Computed example of a mutant assay.
Amino acid sequence: MSPALLLHQWLSPAFPVGAFSYSHGLEVAIADGRICDTASTADWVEAALDHGAGRSDAILLAAAYHAGPTGHDALGDLARALSPSAERLAETDRMGAAFARTLRALHDLDLPDAPYPVVLGQAARACDLPLLLTLNLFLQAFAANLVSASLRLVPLGQTEAQGVILHLTDRIAEIAVDAEPGDTDQIGTATIALDVASMAHETLPTRLFQS
């Protein structure tokens, strides 16, 4: 089976992990007027990729890949500890459980329920998928999901939305290379505005997303 085709299936919006229902706090930033156009969407998504959960989750994915079937407990605990809000914790746990459940049914893999990047790394290792390709497509899917959320709430056209993702392509590739060793000592975030937005989401009067 083609690794690229399999990863595209796993990371497709149609794969039943519910990624489309999470905005990662972006919905609050839109409600507050901090995200209002193409430029502000690109800035927010790039920050999430480069200084937030994008990079951290990529490192966790790589660490789980290198650890194999024995290292998921400690990495799962670390992934949960890195979640800055109750909704973000639910996001990674629910997506991970849904992903593991689906792969157990499709591929008969012995995957435990774990935070999403951890179980994805384990699954990629179990199916002998190239790590760097997995990281690139995971990060692209992460960015695309945030852009899709912005597309639904901001006056942002589909062409402009695709332009944002294209603009981030080179940075995604660089982050994937940086994350490939899976060194969890390199995990660190500097996205206070994003984290505060995710904390504030649960009290947002009108919500389309779960986070």
Rank of each mutant, 00 (worst) to 15 (best):
A126S: 15
W44G: 00
S12E: 10
R104M: 05
L75E: 02
A79Q: 07
D195C: 08
T41Y: 02
D170Q: 14
V17A: 09
A105G: 04
L168I: 12
A143D: 06
L49K: 01
D37Q: 04
A14F: 02
T41G: 03
Y65L: 06
A97R: 15
T134G: 07
L7W: 10
I35Q: 03
L156Q: 03
G18R: 09
V147E: 05
M95A: 13
V164T: 04
S150W: 00
E91S: 04
R94L: 14
D110F: 04
E87K: 06
A100S: 14
F15A: 09
S148F: 09
A74E: 10
E91D: 13
R152Y: 00
A97W: 08
A141V: 07
A86P: 01
A81S: 15
L153C: 14
L61M: 15
A58E: 03
P112W: 01
P69K: 01
N136C: 12
A86N: 05
F20C: 01
C36S: 10
E180N: 03
D113A: 15
G52R: 02
A179P: 09
T38R: 13
L153A: 11
L109E: 10
F209I: 07
A29I: 00
I187Q: 02
T41H: 01
P16Y: 05
G71T: 14
R80K: 11
V119N: 04
T134N: 04
R101N: 09
T38P: 00
